[in-house]
Simulated scan of single mutants.
Amino acid sequence: MQYEQGMQKNFRKIAKISLVLVYLVIIAGAVVRMTGSGMGCPDWPKCFGHYIPPTDISELQWRSDTEIKKGQIIIVDQTLMVAAKDFRTGDMYDESNWKRYTKHDYAQFNVAHTWTEYINRLCGALAGLATLVLAVASISFYKQNKKITFFSWLVVFGMGFQAWLGATVVYSVLEPVKITVHMIMALVIVALLLYIIHITKKNVSAGPRSPLNILPLMALALFMTLVQIILGTQVRQLVDDRIDLVGEAAKNLWMSNIGWEFYLHRSFSILVVVLNLVLALRIYRHKLGFSKINWVLALIGFEVLTGIAMYYLDFPFASQPLHLVLASLLFGVQFYLVLEAISSRKRSKSL
């Protein structure tokens, strides 16, 4: 009994820690994208067949009289070769001990890219462990509120699915559609954790009570932010293509001939700003009490500034990952506002 009470007491703290760690994974993923480190580890879940990745290209080259473990990867003639068994190398390279890596044909090593991607995976593993602890702790709620237990374990399965998506992204050599799905799944996990945090709030009757049905407007704002994030991932891919074409040093050319997707993304941002301003004015005018709308306006303001900086100032350092992280934070705050609006509507109907 005391164990269950202790778990319940700390449950929201664990949920909040899990949420912070998931956002940390999003930040790490944004840095991976900014630095072009997505293929820093060409296999999954290990990195070049190691739990701790190499720090020098010599570790990925064939060497005589060296202990090799099954699954270890080396690069031979621009090809990834995987050890078929445990063995010790002789004086000559023996092809019978190796098999070609068949998931893809990307065979490059960049120590900075490798360790950036590896740190991203460590953040993911840490977040996964935190959500597992959350799910175990949720069992104490099973008798009184099965919904808490269900959604907590759903987060764990979501993290597992997200890990699998991460593997497919690597195996596809960073296929744009799969990167987008990977990002959306991260936001789904954020939404699930926010829902758990919301329904385990101690004083569920507290919070704004709105006589107006503002929920549809909030839901529309949330949906438009999600659409904008998806459009943004497509624009980012166009920028990556331009970088491959003109080079990383020619930042002034990254947005030249960028395509209609960018202009759609920019125009859609105006709609997002206008809609959220209308929402905020309605909340302020009728004194509805949804204070997190201030966070929404602040995040949108910074989001617009980073977008302007990228276009007019030729992509200042860290502007790209910051733009993505701000968008994911905006989604989270808007989703929580929707949850508050739903609760407010229920309380108003019960009066």
Rank of each mutant, 00 (worst) to 15 (best):
I342T: 09
V272K: 03
G71P: 09
A83T: 12
S172L: 06
W254F: 08
P45N: 11
V156I: 10
V169E: 00
I73F: 05
V25P: 03
W153L: 01
Y23Q: 12
G289A: 10
L245R: 04
R33G: 00
V22A: 11
D314I: 07
L174E: 00
T131W: 01
A83Y: 05
E261K: 12
L281K: 04
V274P: 09
S348G: 08
K346E: 07
V188C: 13
I214K: 00
K99L: 05
N252D: 13
L253G: 12
Q237W: 12
E59K: 14
I74A: 04
V188Y: 09
I119Y: 11
D91M: 14
Q108G: 09
P211V: 14
L271A: 15
F335M: 01
K69E: 04
M159I: 11
R345H: 10
H323G: 07
E340A: 11
L154V: 14
I229P: 02
H323K: 05
L222Q: 14
P54S: 06
E175H: 15
I14Y: 01
D94V: 13
L281R: 09
A112S: 13
L126W: 06
S37V: 06
G289W: 10
L326G: 01
P45C: 10
A191C: 10
D314W: 06
L132F: 15
I139M: 14
I74G: 01
L305I: 13
V156Q: 07
K13T: 12
L194G: 07
A125G: 12
L19H: 07
V170D: 03
V177S: 10
T114D: 11
M183T: 07
D86V: 12
H323I: 13
Y51D: 08
N10Q: 10
G36V: 09
Q234V: 15
K69P: 02
L305T: 05
Q61K: 13
Q320H: 00
